[in-house]
Design a binder for these strands. Structure first.
Lengths: 198, 198
DNA sequence: CGGTTCCTTGAGGATGATCAACGAGGGTGG
DNA sequence: CCACCCTCGTTGATCATCCTCAAGGAACCG
C-alpha cells in the first residue's frame, strides 16, 4: 500500500533517515508507529537461537511495513532493518488508525494489502514446510519472478546472494549452492559468472 | 470475526450442512463466497506431493474462514474440510464486500482479524522454520494454550491426536511421539493414559 | 594489490523420515 | 460378555539428506 505522502505529512508524520544496517524496530518492541518507505528498502527478519536468520519479507520504496501489530496491540514478531541508506516516514499509531477510518479508499486498499499478505504467507508456509530444498528454492524464485518479472516469459536475474536466498528459504548457504548447481544441470536455472537467472 | 447471523441472512446468506470430512472448497478453486461457521468446525489444509498434509488452521463455531482470496480475486491456496457435521453460512463475495464497506464496526473488526491472522502466521513460520522438533511442538502447544487456556497457569489437555500435531507442525507422527516422550521425561509435558497435557 | 565479501567443494556427522510391526483403547454387533 | 475391528499410539532399525565444519577460490572495490 502507498498512502499519499502529503496526506501523511498533513496528519503530522515525520520522515527519518536510516543508515544501511540500522535497525528500525526490534522483535518484542511494542508497535507504536506506522512506517512507510520513501527511499530505500527494508528487511523484516528474525534470528533463531542457532543464530540463523530467516527473512520474512523485503519491502521497497513506496511500501509500508509492520502494520499488523498496530491493529491488535501487539509486539513486533520480528526485527526490521534498513538494507541500504533509507528515508522512512513514520506516524503515530493513533493517527494511522484514524486515517484508515476516515478515508474509505485507503481503508479498502489497506484491507486488500492485508489479505494479500495473508495469501502470500500461506504460500510461503506451504513452500517452507516442504523439506526438499529444490522445492523451497523454486517456490522462492517463482514468487520473486511473479512480483518482479517482466511478462515476456524470459529468464530474469535474481538479485540476491546465496546467503540471502538461504535466509528466505530457511536453508543453509551450502545447501542453496549445491541445490542451485543441480538445478543448473537440470536446466531449471541458469548460472553465468555466478549470477543466477530464473 | 463473527458477523451477526440475522444481518447475513438479511443480505441473502444461506446456511448449508456439511457432513464430517466433506470438502467445502478445494485448493485452486476461485473464491466466490464468504463462509462463517454456525455449528461445527473446519480445517484448512494442503497436501504436498508426498501425500503429507499440513494444517494451516482450525476454525470453530462463530468463525469465518477463507476470506483473504475474496479481497484480491485469488484462488484458494488450500483446501477446507468439515471436521465434524457442521452448519456453515455462505454469502456471495459481492455482498460480503458491500457489508464490510457499509458497516464500520464490521469493517474494523474484520481488519483486526486480518492483522491477527498475519501476526499468527508470522509466529507459525518462525516455529516451522526451526528444524528442531521440540521447538516446533512447543510453539504449537503454546499457541494452542494461549488461545484456549484457562489463565490459571495450570496444565491443560491437548485435544489433538499425535497425527494432528504432526500435521500442525510439519513433522511425522513418529517424530512427534518420540519428541513428546523426551519432553515428558524432561517434565515439559505430562502424558497420562496417552493423553497429553501442557 | 590487498582486503572483503561471496561462492564453492569435500568429508563427516546428526537427525528426521521411512518402513515394518506391534500394542492399546474404544466401540459395535453377535 | 466377548470377539472383532478400527483408530491411535509406540518402538526399533535403517536410510537419506541436510547441516556442520573446514578450507580454498573467485569477484569486486578501494
Amino acid at each position: 500500500m502507498q498512502i499519499d505522502l502529503d496526506l501523511l505529512f498533513t496528519w503530522g508524520a515525520v520522515a527519518k533517515k536510516y543508515q544501511k544496517d540500522e535497525i528500525i524496530f526490534y522483535e518484542d518492541d511494542l508497535a507504536l508507529f506506522f512506517y512507510q518507505i520513501v527511499e530505500g528498502s527494508v528487511k523484516m527478519f528474525c534470528t533463531n537461537e542457532d543464530g540463523k536468520d530467516f527473512t520474512h519479507g523485503i519491502f521497497k520504496k513506496g511500501s509500508s511495513f509492520g502494520e499488523p501489530p498496530l491493529l491488535i496491540d501487539e509486539v513486533y514478531p520480528c526485527n526490521s532493518i534498513a538494507m541500504e541508506n533509507s528515508v522512512i516516514i513514520k506516524i503515530s499509531k493513533d493517527k494511522f488508525l484514524t486515517i484508515i477510518e476516515e478515508y474509505p479508499e485507503i481503508n479498502k486498499s489497506f484491507m486488500r494489502l492485508l489479505a494479500l499478505r495473508i495469501f502470500n504467507k500461506t504460500i510461503t508456509t506451504k513452500a517452507v514446510i516442504n523439506q526438499k530444498p529444490e522445492f523451497r528454492i523454486t517456490a522462492f524464485l517463482e514468487h520473486f519472478k511473479k512480483h518482479n518479472g517482466n511478462d515476456t516469459g524470459g529468464k530474469i536475474q535474481i538479485p540476491y546472494t546465496r546467503q540471502e536466498i538461504a535466509e528466505f528459504t530457511g536453508l543453509r548457504v551450502e545447501t542453496v549452492i549445491r541445490t542451485l548447481t543441480q538445478m543448473k544441470n537440470h536446466k531449471k536455472v541458469e548460472i553465468t559468472n555466478h549470477k543466477l537467472f530464473f
